[in-house]
């Protein structure tokens, strides 16, 4: 599946059964990112398939 990581402006390919596995594989802390699958922010339990369009946003806190 194709994944765009917003903070680093990188497109990568990876395989994972769900969002939790994907974040673990990418070594990303699940509390520091928001995962968008096909236009929707999802939870870590969300199952993934190869055609999903995924964007990983970093959580923004500054003001």
């Amino acid at each position: 599946m194709k994944i765009y990581i917003e903070r680093t402006n990188k497109n990568i390919n990876a395989k994972a059964g769900n969002v939790r596995e994907l974040l673990k594989k990418l070594k990303l802390n699940p509390t520091a990112v928001l995962v968008r699958v096909n236009g929707e922010i999802v939870t870590e339990d969300k199952k993934l398939n190869s055609k999903d369009k995924i964007i990983i946003h970093s959580v923004v806190s500054g003001g």
Binding site: P30, T31, A32, S58, V59, V60, S61
Partner: peptide
Amino acid sequence: FKEPTALLG
């Protein structure tokens, strides 16, 4: 949003 357990940028 979850409670951050890591330092955010």
